[in-house]
Design a binder for these strands. Structure first.
Lengths: 214, 214
DNA sequence: CAGGCCCATTGATCCCGATCAATCGACGCC
DNA sequence: GGCGTCGATTGATCGGGATCAATGGGCCTG
């Protein structure tokens, strides 16, 4: 079997996701479509049912930073204050479960929801800290190696398909598209990964990849 | 009046800090002393009473990334799971209010504590995201400019004193100590900031600094 | 005050990743 | 099948920041 995030899978739904099932609305988004925009009022919480999503922040001069990539079962928009600090866009056609923040209040009372929200925010913070570490002190090669390792690990299956293009990888890693491409070629040359196409690969030498990911 | 975080100030104590006053213990730490260590069991929450603290993460090859700097009124160790993901060290002699996580449970019940913890974690996440943006896409000059701006803004007073040395700034910004020094010199040459000594400065041209911080 | 230590600054050179530019290759359309 | 489009790859060159090395300057100690 190939491919990780098949359209109708919502693996290991979080407790929050199951709470959210009771309220809210399923909405389809087309590939490339904006789910919410930077600096908009943040009154919704989004749970990904199928497809993949990126969060991005754009500077006035066009420089772009990708916050993270999200897959089925992930929640986005949680951690926000009054305004969204990133925008979210569909990487592929996807279905999003949308819940008004205010309607979460009806579930409040025993404090378990609060703790669940906190937990989710905490995990988001951990991921962001890991991302930070990578941007601050890793070389281009280490960045790309860690990225491929992380994606492959998350998928947990032999053949991995990348839902994002090279530009998205570059904007996530703080590199240019050319450098990402070169590092991928290099990793392939060392027989550490094997790309069937630009968005389809498998790890052939895990220990070497781990070592390079530093 | 000079200097920002004078030893006995705990400005704008957070609601959580005031809750914490009811339980826990005040502990002094000497400059350079470790408050908690990376990968240790995270059973404490720390609120800074006086002094300044840095959180750092060390890689096996010696590369270091600073997570953030903390001042009186700030809480650290909040966001952690079972283990601390960074270590925390005193930048100067300081006093820390230490509370066992388990003893926070006695305050639990109405859910207000949960929401306060969540809020604090959310703010921490926001700061980390901002830091991320800086590491990913800013030039050395922009990084140093943003850093000085942020410190000066936080202090909100004319003369700013930096509690950290150049190496700490470098490890926060993902640069080398030499580059930080050069950029500081450059900003000084453009009459944007003015350093009385290596750790003492004032902003002379705010608009220019804002523009460079990008 | 002299000497030593530690940190910051400055200078010279190198190299990684950015930039500029050309080519490739998959896919859709006529 | 030929052709246009768009994303990825590859090549050549440039430049910002790292690295290596020397100097400066505050502060403590004797």
């Amino acid at each position: 079997m190939t491919l990780a995030y098949s359209p109708d899978t919502a693996p290991a739904a979080s407790p929050l996701a199951s709470l959210m099932d009771r309220v809210g609305l399923r909405m389809p988004f087309a590939k490339g479509e904006e789910i919410f925009g930077q600096d908009e009022a943040a009154d919704m919480i989004h749970s990904i049912v199928s497809g993949a999503v990126r969060t991005t922040r754009l500077q006035s001069d066009g420089r772009r930073q990708i916050g993270d990539f999200y897959y089925p079962g992930d929640i986005i928009g949680l951690e926000t204050g009054d305004l969204y600090r990133f925008s979210a866009e569909a990487l592929s056609d996807c279905v999003i479960h949308v819940v008004k923040r205010s309607s979460l209040h009806v579930l409040r009372g025993d404090g378990s929801l609060d703790r669940t929200l906190w937990e989710a925010t905490r995990r988001e913070l951990e991921r962001t800290q890991e991302h930070l570490l990578m941007l601050g002190r890793k070389s281009a090669c280490e960045k790309v190696a860690s990225f491929l390792r992380d994606v492959a690990q998350r998928v947990g299956c032999e053949d991995v398909s990348l839902p994002m293009g090279r530009q998205d990888m570059a904007d996530y890693l703080g590199l240019t598209i050319e450098t990402v491409s070169r590092m991928v070629t290099q990793l392939q040359g060392s027989r550490i990964v094997e790309f069937a196409s630009a968005r389809q690969f498998r790890v052939t030498r895990w220990p070497a990849l781990e070592r390079l990911a530093a």
